[in-house]
Design a protein around this nucleic acid. Sequence first.
DNA 1: CACAGAATAT
DNA 2: GATATTCTGT
Length: 302
Amino acid sequence: MKDDDDDGGAGSGARGRVLESEHGLPTRGPAHDPTAPVPLSSSSSTQRRDRPAHDPTAPAPSSSSSSIRRRDMKDDDDGGAGSGACGRVLEWEHGLPTAEELTPVSHPLIPPALAAAFGIDVPRTAFPSSAFDSPALARKPPNTRLSLGCYGEDDDEKEEEGKSEVAAYTTGACGGGKSEDAASASGACRGGRAEKKARIAWTPELHNRFVAAVEHLGDKGAVPKAIVRLMNVEGLTRENVASHLQKYRIYLKQQARSPAGPQPPPAYSPSDSRPQQPSDTSTRSTCDIEKLERDKEARKDK
DNA sequence: CACAGAATAT
DNA sequence: GATATTCTGT
């Protein structure tokens, strides 16, 4: 247990930084490939100081003029929402992110530094939009990348995570003891080995997808594996979902237990809470869920 | 063995 | 408190 640092209580501590992407949306194209798994993204409103200039070698996806925002939609996607957080909650209750929002939400959120480190350039849209034939395949291509930010330490830590990537857990077994190298995590274990998994942050977007998937799968089929598949979020592991699901269920139970309970701030999820309002039962909205549904089926079909 | 779920740890 | 990791049953 020499791990020490780690997140630990850190959560609330100063090191709250997580995988927040750049605050500014990088150059945004209109549409992305619907098939590509949405990279774990998170947009926090936390004021984030910019990273120092990127190296000249880095492509630096973040353009200086990041004022490109497409606000035509009725709702904004990110939950963080730095500006104006007024009736947004209501909006959420109304409709989960529209399908368009749900799927295409993919930005190259890899910190420039990291990208450079890996010698990769954030792929923009390598796939023909009509390539949604098989999302499953889509995730495989060289396109896929870990966008999971690491719950690193504070701000100025440097990423040394030696290519952990997905391969990290592949070796899983690795003889059982796994904490050893992790211990020196912060130090320098260039050896390259499975490191501690960075904590993922369940941003409103992620949670939305999660809820949508769960609800869509139904009580019966809402198991981690299925959920992960439906969500189709790059880097999201079954364990991540399992953990979240566990909590989510507890939350639901509480909700059920106190329907009239005067406990307004349960807010487990900043986004939405329950499935849908009781009002309509006939008007099945064709929304995000549908999209997911389609995706799922397509995938299944494959 | 892989997975889901609960229990526990960080 | 939020997630991760471990444990246990299937």
